[in-house]
Nucleic acid binder design. Structure first.
Lengths: 209, 209
DNA sequence: GGGTGCGCTAAGCGCCCGCTCACCCTTGCC
DNA sequence: GGCAAGGGTGAGCGGGCGCTTAGCGCACCC
């Protein structure tokens, strides 16, 4: 691979796998537009315009507008699973791994807010087959977090009466960051990640710090 | 007032104030449609059809499709403020009031999921002036919750290093219920409300029941 | 019982949507 | 240089959108 897939800041460039170059530019333009206005309010003319192309160019690389959303959604969810899987399978106590999972997941939602917004909130705009595929990836996301919490309960580090419910709440908290996070706001993604990791450790009754 | 505004279950019928009857039927149809497909994917023909009317009937009661969304959003946000204000100003310790605020707010999001979904997720579909008005109501929502947490910190019941950040997280957790809650799922609104109240008390470091 | 006005409909206007098609450049191979 | 291939464009099709308008029917008042 000749181009770097990760920048120095740790922020992923997950679109490196998309070729050729024009297809990637269109995909990036679509992410921006979908995040700003939503899938249904975005026109193919707008996407093509942002990518510096004519409306027809879109259809050389993608069959439909929905295929664009599907591709974005799949790549984004794969990235989400990868982030959580890395944290879940790292070394260290469940407490440390849960904190790392939450803070890195939150950093991804805050830092790549445009992508995360599309990934998390435009699921219903997909057709049935595409949605079914993405729902499968979401189950993997849920399983990774639930796994860490279960381990912490077994080891006695956590005190969690309702593991599925708490898993849901933890993921919900992280995902909703994509809705409210503001790049020009007072908090950096790192700060929100640290705050949320602390709050989640409180939620599972873990000893902190 | 000849008709009841509240049902026995405590679930509000906040549309009682909308008159005449045809206007209310259209508003309810719009809530359903917006919640299901989103504002931009909903057509005025669909709304009118659900209300059993012709497309033109909509424009007798509302100037534009956006006015429908604006009205729904304002009524919904006013209800949200009312729920939190009631809990915040009740008697009892900050711990009790925070638990009541969270559980009732969650019950509203879960039970009236269609309304809550529109209220919480279609804000960006409003024009600038309408959005500005709604943002003001949101600030009131934030202030009510922050007020309870501040009181708990002052009284020594809570241990919260970052009050604005924790307020944000608590509200985020409650609001996101509207995204994931499923009426056919395993949990009732009451169960989710109780679970979330407990999780939030853990987040603020309060002694629990 | 005739007039008045309101709630509603049938029809349709103008616009812009997603998408297609015929054609045009550039590139690389012989 | 000839030529095939593929990325790109300009123009435009069919259709559905938000919204308007002309007119109808029914409840109500005198």
């Amino acid at each position: 691979m000749s181009t770097a897939e990760e920048t120095a800041g740790g922020e992923a460039q997950p679109w490196g796998e998309v070729t050729p170059d024009a297809a990637r530019r269109l995909l990036l333009a679509a992410v921006e537009a979908f995040a700003e206005r939503g899938y249904h309010a975005t026109t193919t003319r707008d996407i093509a315009g942002r990518a510096g192309m004519s409306p027809a160019a879109l259809y050389i690389h993608y069959k439909t507008k929905e295929e664009l959303l599907h591709r974005i959604s799949r790549i984004g969810h794969e990235k989400a699973v990868e982030i959580l899987r890395t944290a879940a399978r790292a070394e260290g106590s469940p407490t440390r791994r849960l904190a790392e999972a939450v803070s890195s997941f939150v950093r991804w939602h805050a830092g790549g807010r445009t992508t995360a917004r599309v990934v998390q909130y435009e699921l219903d705009s997909l057709g049935p087959e595409a949605r079914a595929e993405i729902v499968g990836l979401r189950r993997q996301v849920d399983a990774e977090v639930r796994g860490i919490i279960e381990e912490g309960v077994r080891s006695g580090e956590f005190d969690v009466p309702d593991v599925p419910g708490t898993t849901l709440a933890v993921l919900s908290l992280c995902i909703d960051v994509a809705r409210w996070f503001n790049v020009d706001g007072p908090r950096t993604p790192e700060e929100v990640g640290a705050l949320y990791a602390d709050l989640v450790l409180r939620m599972v009754g873990a000893a902190r710090g």
